[in-house]
Design a protein around this nucleic acid. Structure first.
Length: 871
RNA sequence: GGGGGCAUAGCUCAGUUGGUUAGAGCGCUUGCUUGACAUGCAAGAGGUCGAUGGUUCGAGUCCAUUUGUUCCCACCA
């Protein structure tokens, strides 16, 4: 093995082997319990970012863990066609060539889109592999694959037949840049500084005017009424009369509607049903005409008179000028308000009335809410269930049609002769009503999330009753960021319930965002994104993975920093070198099993520590507490195994006593073997590379059984008593530092203790790690001689002669400080034990422990006082 | 307007049914060629866990109020 950890030399090689050996493949095996994870398919718009890296690392760790535990683990990978996002990219690409969609036409466009998909989907797959993702590539699915399209078609037709999909003219969010409708979830709001333009609408036949205020004056051409509150004494007498729209001199009625808030503004609201959701509702109540004044591209149409053809903002500018000159403009009041933007291109969204397809949500939402309240689905952390409820309970009908070309085309045809609307699973060629062959398919495609919603079952063969569907559905855990709970998680849940009659997964593991070093969201516009591949190239995939898992609380955002990855890389290097030591020590020796050797005190201690690591890692992983699990392994490997155990066994390894050597070697290999397995889910590459070099192993670690807790090897008493030995070592080291004694100077130890056997059986360890040359057991302090440093410990009192280095006054001060600390402890423990409530109500073990502690400290106090007297 | 999150060491963060003396990484101080590792080793300094009140034998952890910060949802033209 090389001296330093160099991941490049083995990561790609190992991945290739894993893939070729077929151990990622999940094949139905009825002797095993299935464990299914559906990968959230990354968009084919580009490449993976840090958020993906975290998402995939979490999933891979779970899947590897479960696979090692003996489950038939399926992690199904895929990519998403990302209808609007990809279309935006392709339009941009064409623009650079001086082309437009219209010029290349639908077929030409789709050809480009598929080429795009081939390029980027492949790139994403390569990136996933670099990360070490153990997904079943034989099942790689694209959301526009034949099987997904079939599922989409099936679901659409079924919902249509159940009247849960309908077509209607509603106010929708319109992106004038992408020229398509958007769902509510696809609109992002941000606070913007704008104005209220107060405009006078003269009342017909009266010498008064109603002052209305608007943030979008250009929509006034579509005004079909002015509303006042029916209770409003200022205006109620005018209800039924007309006002004259300025500029175009059109008479529109004054209506009484509670939508007009008497307290707000002037109390008069212009009603523009075609361009505002609230106004649309008012329009319905008062039977007002719906007048749309804007084109799809955000320019004004002919109803805007001389402003026709102008962009909405240019129109606004010129219109305001005209209103100003004509005197209709009363005032302009600065006003900041929330403006909706397209989540893909950022353009300001225009609420527009438009004929679109919708999914009726009310009936679908109910069972989806119940599934979570009934605990059929659990959000981890739980608080995200609230976010989910909040959205589901207020969900509006889902606008699913998009005026785009890239996506699943809506399976509805219209008969040009009789107007019949035909929705069918198989493309119709003849009108069932009039027999005409003059049919044309709806031009629109479906919202990307319509197919994503079916992902948990479309990938397994739905609507066919496949064996895979029966075995692997429902999934076990879905891992995703909190930012797509609405887009995706919610829609998968109601879709699974509606079409499969079963929830699509049992647990939803929500993680946070990966932010940059300063805590900002990583984004293209800020240019602060960090490319996982660059990091992997520099530090290795394992280091990146570990850094994304360690120290992260479930659901919390985390910051990426090179420093963190570097610290993880150092950990990898530590593991690497410790392993190198074990392997080198084993060279030329036969490694025996634990059963064949006699275990030393230290051996039992490390084996016991390993057992608690096994128990705790398993426990925490089952609760998806990756941060804690990683920390446990970090501490175990670095502190327990490297800093203590390896140092402890060095003398034994060099000993002439073959029994000692065999014992140490057996334990080293046993512990390392198990630790590697515990670490493998998080850091698959390094653990496998080392495992293959470990004596007595065969093949890859990834198919080996995950360690199981063995209570027979928990050695509870030995763990405690070995703590005493460690205490001695630490005390001697500290004493040396305190007295500026060079660590290399070997000291003599004089110990007053009742645990002579225990100490002498660990003599070699103590001498080695404490840097001592001898241990003398004495019965009183006097025997240790003058000029000593004293350490009062639980296991005994240690005297270290330090000759001229000892300053009696300093030593006194030190012991007095020590005494103070001990007194504090005694006061604390005493206080607790004198508290009737504590003694009566606290668990017995706690009270006993406290009593034991108190006794220990009282004993120590006596010893320190004695020693102070001696000085 | 509604709902969350966060506030713990100089910095970044863990701390999950309330129970030892509150932890880690980085940074800092001191000392080390210690036969795996200087991507290292040893010893340390550094925190009244945002504030107030409460529940409890016991609160960083639970409840209430409050301050600061941040996110999501809804949205009054």
């Amino acid at each position: 093995m090389e001296k330093t950890y160099s991941p490049k030399s083995f990561e790609d090689k190992l991945y290739k082997e894993w893939e070729e050996s077929g151990c990622f493949k999940a094949v139905r095996d009825d002797s095993k319990v299935p464990f299914t994870v559906m990968m959230p398919p990354p968009n084919i718009t580009g490449q993976l970012h840090m958020g993906h890296a975290m998402d995939e690392t979490l999933q891979d760790s779970i899947v590897r863990f479960k696979r090692m535990q003996g489950y038939c683990a399926l992690w199904l990978p895929g990519t998403d066609h990302a209808s609007i996002a990809t279309e935006v990219k392709i339009v941009e690409q064409m623009k650079s060539e001086g082309l437009t969609k219209e010029q290349v036409g639908r077929d030409g466009f789709l050809k480009r889109a598929w080429a795009w998909k081939d390029k980027y989907a492949g790139r994403i797959v390569e990136q996933l592999k670099k990360l070490g993702s153990s997904c079943d590539w034989s099942r790689l699915t694209f959301t526009m694959d034949e099987k997904c399209s079939k599922a989409v078609r099936e679901v659409f037709v079924n919902l249509y037949n159940k009247k849960l999909i309908y077509r209607g003219s509603r106010i929708i969010n319109w992106c004038p840049c992408c020229k398509t409708a958007l769902s509510d979830a696809e609109v992002e709001y941000s606070e913007e500084n704008g104005n209220f333009w107060h405009i006078n609408y003269p009342v017909e036949g009266e010498n008064v005017a109603l002052e209305v205020a608007t943030t979008r004056p250009e929509t006034m051409f579509g005004d079909t009424a002015v509303a006042v509150n029916p209770e409003d004494k200022r205006y109620k007498h005018l209800i039924g009369k007309n006002v004259i729209l300025p500029v175009i001199d059109k008479a529109i009625p004054i209506v009484g509607d509670k939508h007009a808030d008497m307290e707000f503004g002037t109390g008069c609201v212009k009603i523009t049903p075609a361009h505002d959701p609230n106004d649309f509702e008012v329009g319905l109540r008062h039977n007002l005409p719906v007048v749309r004044v804007m084109n799809d591209d955000g320019t004004m149409n002919s109803l805007a008179g001389r402003f026709e053809g102008l962009d909405r903002y240019e129109c606004r500018k010129q219109l305001v000028e005209q209103l100003k000159t004509s005197g209709a403009l009363v005032k302009i009041v600065p006003h900041s308000h929330n403006v909706g933007h397209c989540y893909r291109c950022g353009a300001t969204v225009e609420p527009i009335v438009s004929k679109q397809w919708f999914v009726k949500m009310q009936k679908l939402a109910r069972p989806a809410i119940d599934a979570v309240t009934d605990k059929k689905i659990t959000f981890v952390p739980e608080r995200f269930a609230k976010t989910y409820y909040n959205w589901m309970e207020n969900v509006k009908d889902w606008c699913i049609s998009r005026q785009l070309w890239w996506g699943h085309r809506i399976p509805v045809w219209y008969c040009k002769d009789c107007g019949k609307e035909i929705c069918a699973k198989v493309d119709p060629h003849i009108c069932p009503v009039c027999g005409s062959i003059n049919l044309s398919q709806d031009e629109d495609v479906l919202d990307t999330w319509f197919s994503s919603a079916l992902w948990p079952f479309s990938t397994l063969g739905f609507p066919d009753d496949t064996s895979d569907l029966e075995y692997f559905y429902p999934g076990d855990v879905l891992v995703t960021g909190y930012d797509i709970i609405f887009f995706w998680v919610a829609r998968m849940i109601f879709s699974g319930l509606e079409h499969m009659r079963k929830v699509p997964f049992r647990d939803v593991l929500i993680h946070g965002l990966v932010r940059d070093e300063k805590g900002r969201k990583m984004s293209k516009s800020l240019g602060n994104g960090v490319d996982p591949l660059v990091v992997i190239d520099k530090y290795g995939a394992d280091s990146l993975r570990f850094s994304l898992l360690q120290g992260v609380a479930p659901g919390n955002d985390t910051r990426y920093s090179d420093a963190k990855v570097e610290a993880c890389r150092n950990f990898m290097n530590k593991i690497w070198n410790a392993s190198r030591f074990v392997i080198m020590s084993a060279e030329g020796h036969k490694v025996k099993s634990l059963e064949e050797v006699k275990l030393s005190h230290a051996d039992k201690w490390i084996i016991a520590r390993l057992q608690s690591a096994i128990r705790d890692v398993t426990l925490t992983l089952n609760k998806f507490e990756f941060g804690i699990a990683c920390q446990i392994m970090y501490d175990f490997m670095w502190s327990d195994f490297c800093d203590w155990y390896i140092e402890l066994v060095k003398p034994a390894l060099k000993s002439d006593d073959s029994a000692k050597r065999d014992g140490a070697l057996a334990v080293l290999v046993y512990v390392l073997d198990n630790a590697l397995k515990l670490l493998h889910p998080f850091i698959p590459f390094i653990t496998d590379e080392i495992y293959r070099n470990l004596p007595g192993t065969q093949g890859t670690i990834m198919t080996k059984e995950f360690p199981r807790y063995n209570s027979r090897r928990a050695y509870k008493k030995d763990v405690v008593s070995f703590g005493g030995i460690m205490e001695i070592i630490k005390a001697v080291r500290a004493a040396k530092t305190e007295l500026d004694c060079p660590p290399s100077r070997k000291v003599s130890l004089y110990i007053v203790t009742e645990n002579r056997r225990q100490i002498s059986s660990n003599q070699e360890s103590i001498l080695k790690l404490a840097g001592a040359k001898e241990i003398n057991f004495i019965s009183s302090a006097a025997e240790a001689g003058e000029k000593t440093v004293t350490k009062v410990l639980g296991i005994g009192t240690i005297f270290i002669p330090m000759g001229e280095l000892v300053d009696i006054e300093k030593e006194k001060a030190r012991l007095e400080g020590e005494l103070e600390r001990i007194m504090d402890e005694i006061r604390r423990a005493d206080g607790k034990l004198n508290n009737q409530g504590f003694v009566a109500k606290a668990p017995k073990k706690l009270v006993d422990d406290e009593r034991e502690k108190l006794n220990k400290y009282i004993e120590m106090r006596e010893k320190v006082i004695n020693q102070l007297k001696n000085l």
